[in-house]
Design a protein around this nucleic acid. Structure first.
Lengths: 340, 340
DNA sequence: CTGAAAGCGCTTACAG
DNA sequence: CTGAAAGCGCTTACAG
C-alpha cells in the first residue's frame, strides 16, 4: 500500500479540523460553502480518496453487494452456462447504477460455501444465482435466513422456498411452449430435464407443459428424461429418448444448451428437425439464434432480472418489506418447431 | 447491519485477552495450542467472522482485486462480448484459488472512469480488460502508472504500452490464419477490423497477416475495412467490401462476432461460404463452433489468460518484478475456409 | 506464551 | 457553522 494523504493532511492544508474535512467531502449542508470548496479543491489536488475500509468500519455498512454464482460440479468445469454469465453482466450494471460495488464469487455446491460476506461486513447483502440440486442447498438457505442475512435468490418464486426470490414464470413458459407445439399439430411431446423437487425451475416448466396438455385433452403424463444443463447431457438424453419411444414428434428441453445437444443427437441419427421432430429450448441465450435450425425458445429477460435482483436486495438492506417478483415468460418463435 | 459478536466477546467467554483471540484466530504459532482450540471453538459456536473492514484497515491491504471491464460505448449496450464474459469467468475462478476477493465493475470508455479502487483501499490492485479506442485511454494508463497503482491489463504485449500486460500473440495468430488460407489456395485476402494504433491487438493480427502474405511473395497490402467487435459491424463491413472488390476469396476478421456478421452478409448476397469466399474469425467464442458453417478461428485461451492476469497482479502487489506474458495463438480449423 | 495499549482512517454525537 | 473527542473492530509492536 502506497503512502496516501489522509483527511488530517487535508485538514492541515486547509487550516480546518479533520471533522470539517470529513463533512465537506460528504457534502454536508452543515459546512460553509467556501470552506467546502476549499477542502474539495485540496482533496482533488492531492488526489485524495476516502478510505473505504475506515469509512465502512465506522458507518457499519459497506455499500457493496456480493454475488454468489453456484455451479453444478457435474457440469463441464471450464464452461459457465451463458445464461448465468449474462445475468452476471446485468447484475454488475445494475449495481453500478445504484452506486454499489459488486463482489463476485463462484462456488461449488458440493463444497461448503462460505457465504460469510455479510458476516465479515464485506457486503451488506448477497445475491444467489445458480443451479444444481435444490434439495442439497435448501438447508443452507434456511440457515442464511436464520442468521438474518440479507439475501435474494434467482429461482422459482414460491413462498415455500426460503428467502426472497426473483424469477421468471417457469410454469407459464412451459405452458406457452406446449400451446405453441399443439397449435402446430404436434401430438407426442417429451420433456428433457429434471422434473422433481431437486430442480424446482425445471419442474415448473414441466408442470406448465402438463397443464397445457391436459387442457388440450391429453391426460397421459408426457415422457420425461433427466438432463442437466449441458449440451452433452442433452445429447445423451435425446439418444435415450429415441430408444424409448420412436413416436415422439416434439422435444421440450429445460434449457437451450440441452436443446442444442438434443438437436445434434437427432441430426446425427438422421432425423430432420423440425420435419420429423420439433425441438424447443429455454433461456434464449445468444447461441439459440445461431443454432441450426434457429431455436424456438423462451426468453428470460436477464436485464430486467438483474435490475430486480439488485433493487430488491437493496430494499431488503434498507429494511423495506419486499415481495417476490415474477417476470413473465416470452415465447420466441424461430424455426426449430416448423410452421403450422 | 446486524449485531455481531466481536473479538472482545470471544475473549470474554474464553477468559483470555482480545489480543490472544486475534492471534488464535489467525493461527499464530505464538499461542498455546489449547488456548487456540478453545478460542476457535467459541468463535465457531458464535458464528464469529473477523470484520474485513477492521482487518483491512489495520493491515493496510484488503486481499481483494478489482476487475474493470471496459465496453466500447458504440457497441450494443445490452450485450457484452462473450469473449470478455468468458475472461471474467476465468478471472473470478483464479482469484478464488488465490484467496482474493474480486470486485467487478463495468466502465464506459467515454466517461471518466473511476479507477480509484486502490486509492480507496477497496482493492490492492486492478485488472483492466476491454476494448475500444486505445488512443483514448493510453493517457489514463500512464496516469495509473504515475500513481503507482498496481495494475495489469489484457492486451497487446509491447513495452511501449503503459503497464504490465498479458495477452495472446496476435501477430502469430494473424500469421497462422493467413498461412492456412494460402495453403488452401486462397489468393485474394481482405481484413475486416481496425488496423491502426487505435486498436493495437487488431493491428497486430493484421501485421501478422501482411507478413505471411509477403513471405508468400505477395507484396500488395491487402484490402482492409474497419469494423468494431459486433455482428452488425461485421455485416456492414462485408457489404462494403463486396462493393469495393469482387475478387476477394477470403475474409480475415478481427473477431468471431465480426466474422459471424460477415458470413451472414455473404449468405444474404447469395455467396457461398466457403465455396466462393472463406471466412476466418478470432477468439473462438462458444458461438464459433455453432456458426453455419462452423467458423475457423484462433483460440484465445481464456482460462490460462485469467490465471496469468491474476497471478501477475498478485506478484506486482507483493512487490515482485514481473514480465509481460505472451500466450501462443492456436489455430482452430473448422469449415468456414473449406478444404485443400 | 500472554496482555495492555496504540493506532489504522474515518464518521458523528456532543458542545459551543 | 466548527472543533475536540469517542469509537467502529481489528492487528501488532512492546513489555513481561
Amino acid at each position: 500500500m502506497r503512502d496516501k494523504a489522509t483527511s488530517f493532511d487535508i485538514a492541515h492544508m486547509a487550516g480546518v479540523s479533520q471533522s470539517t474535512v470529513s463533512r465537506a467531502l460528504r457534502n454536508s449542508p452543515l459546512v460553509n460553502q467556501e470552506t467546502r470548496e476549499k477542502v474539495q479543491a485540496i482533496a482533488l489536488q492531492l488526489n485524495y480518496k476516502v478510505d473505504k475500509n475506515a469509512s465502512s468500519l465506522r458507518q457499519r455498512h459497506s455499500r457493496t453487494i456480493a454475488l454468489l454464482l453456484f455451479e453444478d460440479p457435474t457440469s463441464d468445469d471450464s464452461m459457465i452456462n451463458p445464461f448465468f454469465l449474462s445475468m452476471l453482466g446485468s447484475i454488475t450494471k445494475a449495481c453500478a447504477l445504484e452506486g454499489y460495488d459488486l463482489l463476485v464469487s463462484f462456488q461449488q455446491y458440493s463444497t461448503d460455501w462460505h457465504a460469510d460476506y455479510e458476516d465479515t461486513n464485506k457486503a451488506d447483502g448477497i445475491i444467489l444465482l445458480g443451479y444444481g440440486d435444490y434439495m442439497n442447498y435448501q438447508d443452507k438457505l434456511s440457515k442464511l435466513e436464520q442468521q438474518q442475512t440479507h439475501f435474494v435468490r434467482w429461482g422459482e418464486v414460491d413462498n415455500a422456498h426460503p428467502g426472497l426470490s426473483v424469477g421468471c414464470d417457469n410454469f407459464q413458459g412451459g405452458y406457452k411452449i406446449t400451446q405453441h407445439l399443439i397449435g402446430l399439430g404436434r401430438k407426442n411431446l417429451a420433456f428433457v430435464g429434471g422434473a422433481d423437487n431437486h430442480c424446482p425451475e425445471f419442474f415448473e416448466r414441466f408442470k406448465g407443459m402438463c397443464h397445457a396438455l391436459q387442457q388440450a385433452g391429453s391426460n397421459d403424463k408426457p415422457l420425461q428424461i433427466d438432463a442437466i444443463t449441458t449440451e452433452d447431457s442433452g445429447y445423451q438424453a435425446a439418444v435415450e429418448l429415441l430408444t424409448k419411444d420412436s413416436g415422439v414428434d416434439a422435444i421440450v428441453c429445460a434449457s437451450d444448451l440441452i436443446a442444442i445437444g438434443a438437436m445434434r443427437a437427432l441430426q446425427d441419427k438422421g432425423i430432420d428437425v423440425p420435419g420429423q421432430i420439433a425441438v424447443v429450448g429455454y433461456d434464449n441465450i445468444l447461441l439459440a439464434s445461431f443454432a441450426n435450425p434457429p431455436l424456438t425458445t423462451v426468453h428470460q429477460n436477464t436485464k430486467k432480472a438483474g435490475e430486480l435482483l439488485v433493487t430488491s436486495l437493496i430494499g431488503l438492506i434498507k429494511g423495506e418489506q419486499r415481495e417476490p417478483v415474477l417476470i413473465p415468460a416470452e415465447l420466441v418463435i424461430r424455426e426449430s418447431c416448423g410452421r403450422a
